[in-house]
Nucleic acid binder design. Structure first.
Length: 271
DNA sequence: ACTTCGACCTGTTGGC
DNA sequence: TGCCAACAGGTCGAAG
């Protein structure tokens, strides 16, 4: 489910249904996700109005006058708008019931996600404090990435997936961006030239923006119960294509493991 | 300051 | 066909 484009798609999908709406009550069907779900949400949230629906990296932030609800979807999480009273399925762990009869429902089979309530200034929250810039924001540019990379010996793929470097570049788009930029995923981050970083920055922004744009079409039927995306699958160049021919040079795409994540690349196009 | 790796979970897939 | 190991869109936090 959640690469940055999907989280952003989720944000855009739920925002019109929950912003400026009043929370009636919370239904907790399970106490823990990755961490305990802050118990205080059951008493603090009812009566509050959701004022903002924003995103930092892959964290969704629901702002109220009392505090901020931090939601992460982990590997398998999703958020849906359903009608109040709708039967909950196996992995529907939390319902945020609104006064208007709608419910924001959190589902997460693997429970790698989290739901945390923060009443202190949100920027200083430990999970958010050391995050790098947004890939689609102004702070993410060639100079930044080049400078940041100079002291790093890690492979470029690992480097761009590090949330302290830049947020939101998950495994799929790290693979895709490196292919588009023609950079070998194994190359050491500190040994890549500035012009190549310029290209990489462009490719990262482009691939993420494109995916968000396509996600926009999924947006319309977001409230449908059966949300199968697969909308970006068509445009994937390397991810999930191990052993298949490169779309550019027909060479066989190779797969390796980097930091227990699979990397697929074209040995000829990526150097 | 940086890198590596185990851990957290369930559902699906691929190889035998 | 069936079983089991390996793997899956993330990322924290401990240890080196």
């Amino acid at each position: 489910m959640p690469e940055l484009p999907e989280v952003e798609t989720t944000r855009r999908g739920i925002q019109p249904h929950i912003r400026k709406k009043v929370v009636r009550n919370i239904i907790l069907r399970r106490k823990n996700l990755r961490w305990p779900i802050t118990p205080a949400i059951s008493t603090d949230l009812p009566g509050e109005t959701i004022q903002s629906v924003s995103r930092r990296g892959k964290y969704l932030l629901l702002g109220t006058s009392k505090g901020t609800l931090i939601i992460h979807l982990g590997m398998s999480g999703s958020l849906r708008i359903v009608e109040a009273g709708r039967q909950a399925a196996k992995h529907d762990h939390v319902d945020i019931v609104l006064a208007n009869g709608k419910v924001l429902r959190y589902t997460d089979p693997r429970r790698f996600g989290c739901i945390l309530w923060e009443t202190e200034p949100i920027e200083s929250h430990p999970l958010l404090a050391s995050l790098g810039p947004e890939p689609l924001g102004d702070d993410f540019d060639t100079d930044y990435l080049f400078k940041k990379s100079r002291t790093r010996s890690a492979a470029i793929k690992t480097f761009i997936m590090d949330s302290r470097v830049v947020v939101g570049v998950g495994n799929i788009y790290a693979n895709e961006a490196l292919f588009l930029a023609g950079i070998s995923p194994k190359r050491s981050a500190g040994k890549i030239s500035k012009p190549r970083y310029a290209k990489l920055v462009l490719c990262i922004t482009q691939v993420l923006q494109q995916a968000i744009d396509v996600g926009g079409t999924t947006l319309r039927d977001f409230t449908d119960s059966n949300g199968e995306p697969g909308y970006f699958a068509q445009s994937l160049q390397v991810y999930g294509r191990k052993g298949k021919p490169c779309h550019v040079c027909q060479s066989t795409l190779k797969e390796i493991r980097q930091g227990q994540r699979s990397t697929v690349y074209c040995p000829k196009c990526q150097r």
